[in-house]
Design a protein around this nucleic acid. Structure first.
Lengths: 198, 198, 198, 198
DNA sequence: CATGAATGAGTGTTCATTCAT
DNA sequence: TATGAATGAACACTCATTCAT
């Protein structure tokens, strides 16, 4: 009997290696050879677990999102409406090293998505999920009377988009301009406060 | 007797060529050969004016920012306070093809900046200028009584940061999720409206 | 206590798999993995029955020839002289898809034989058998008075060589220039007719 | 001023190198690296003169045909009808080392053409030219009363195809089975004799 | 015996860079 | 200065082969 390896485990090892490289040296440094080496295997081994490089990158992106989602699900249990929204948005900000890494990875994928249809598709699907979630939290907050259904004439969709754009913008600035963007959490909280009904 | 050429002029020619390519076909298409050809020179000429390819890209980024600044300066003449701010922020949104491409270029540089100290430094310097400008416009708007000096307890620095983060976030979403982010201009305008004193 | 397997049987299974792939998708598609998979085994099993891939291909060529021979033997039963010869030569033309593929395989081996001594040896041995067969059919046809012993001063060896060369040439043209070589069967038949005594 | 090289000359150098390799070790051995090395250059140099490997192989094939055509044109001057045809067909047989090489190269291309559309197209175009030429020589021979217009009920097209198939078949056998196919010239001549009117 | 994980050399191709002219 | 020929490392990917289990 040959050594039997857990395919999912190996895939995860490789994806983790890819993530480490992207975080350390950027997505352009994540060549197949570099990934294999980082994972501690020969370059040919990737063939067994991934059809091509795109599949590795895609998995890395999905893994990143899945981690965020899982962390969120845990934090959101028991919360509803504005409180849940607040937790969600704050959790997406890079306030510690781990989340800073996630954000760095994400930024690399932004650029790559603009030229890779497969990556863009994944990016969109998962962004749509998040948007939907934010929107439904806004709705339940409105129904609970915590916030107005229309914020200064702006529908829920626009509000959701605005909040998520702000999260991405602040996250980006945090990594690019850490000095200036030291207060992104406060900024986000203030933004949420303005949603409240008086 | 060597031919006397204007170094700065040549550099600009080459950088302009690089920019044209990047805007037209993406940063990956900007190979040294393609840049030289686009500029109308042989590939070897680049050596004389740039240490390496990175220097060309860096210059392209700087030029991009300078052009934005110049375009802005023109639009802002005669405007002050909130009106000027409004013009500035809207102008930074990718509402036509040219600015969409400029945003694409920018996003590419975000990712690269995270792993390239030289790029990051440039990025920071120029972002600082913009931040300062927004802050001063906010200040003059406050002094003119158009907006409150403290927006819901938030200082001018934070407001400036918030507006700029929102611009970047919305710009990014516009490129990644065009369906969903069709209304970024309206969102930006609503945000500005909320700054106004009643 | 090791499992006892019939080595020859296994070899044949693998070779048959290789043949199926070559006929279906060309010799370039016949990778060791593909062959193993087609045969229903893991890729490592090939090691036990073949020294290397070349040995598999060689066996496939031999099998191909043997199959042709067997098909012929069946068709030739009861036939003698010119009638048998006619059957033999026509059967070697790629007049249906199966034989077209067999010809494709053969052409691939022609090229490889020129640089592989082992392949060339096999090729020669089996070509010699065929030549001998054609010659003996010609002889029996001559003895039966169907054809002249000397065809326009040409001995039986040359006639045999000429007929076989024509078969290979026409087969090749059929695959390379199907439009032009649509009438190879008629051409072959006319050639045989010209052998007849008046 | 930089070193100016004659592009056509370089292309020919590279193509000649490719031809040498194909003849020496088969078409499969003609990797881009091997070709570059054989030509005495680094592997990157090929980029300057050829779009891709297929273009090199295609050029090698065309060069081969052009050489044959040129050699023929010279030999055929002053000849017409059957005499010209005879010269043409005999010249296509690998009766000396040079033509043996050409044939070896050709056989390699036969196999390759079956899986490469570009190669097949070229092969067909040039084969069509040759077929046309043979056909027109047959026609003029018939008009001159040297041969019958219909050879045993066989039209000129079929006769041309038959003669060319025989040339290819004999050439192939000459390389694969040199012992047996020592008399291909005599066989070809006898075939031509049979075309003559009594 | 059989498995399938793992290897590493090799493929065509791209491209920043060097340098003699 | 400017040219463009030339380099050689790097890229993603393929595949025959090896070998511990």
């Amino acid at each position: 009997m040959p050594k039997i390896v857990n395919h999912d485990e190996r895939r995860e090892e490789v994806v983790a290696a890819a993530r480490r490289i992207i975080l350390r040296a950027g997505i352009e440094a994540a060549t197949t050879r570099a990934i294999a080496k980082e994972a501690g295997y020969s370059n040919g081994v990737l063939t067994h677990y991934f059809a091509d490089k795109d599949e590795i990158l895609l998995s890395a992106l999905r893994t990143s999102h899945r981690r965020i989602t899982e962390r969120l699900a845990e934090k959101l249990t028991g919360l509803t409406g504005l409180a849940a929204l607040r937790e969600l948005l704050l959790d997406n900000l890079p306030m510690d090293e781990e989340r800073e890494r996630e954000t760095g990875l994400e930024i690399g994928f932004w650029a790559r998505s603009l030229t890779s249809p497969a990556l863009l598709r994944t990016q969109r699907e998962e962004a749509a999920d998040l948007h939907l979630l934010v929107r439904s939290l806004l709705q339940s907050a409105a129904e609970a009377g915590e916030i107005a259904g229309e914020i200064a004439g702006e529908g829920l969709d626009d509000t959701a988009e605005r909040l998520l754009a702000l999260v991405d913008g602040l996250s980006l600035h945090r990594l690019l301009y850490p000095d200036r963007a030291s207060r992104i959490e406060e900024i986000m909280l203030a933004e949420l406060d303005r949603l409240r009904l008086p």
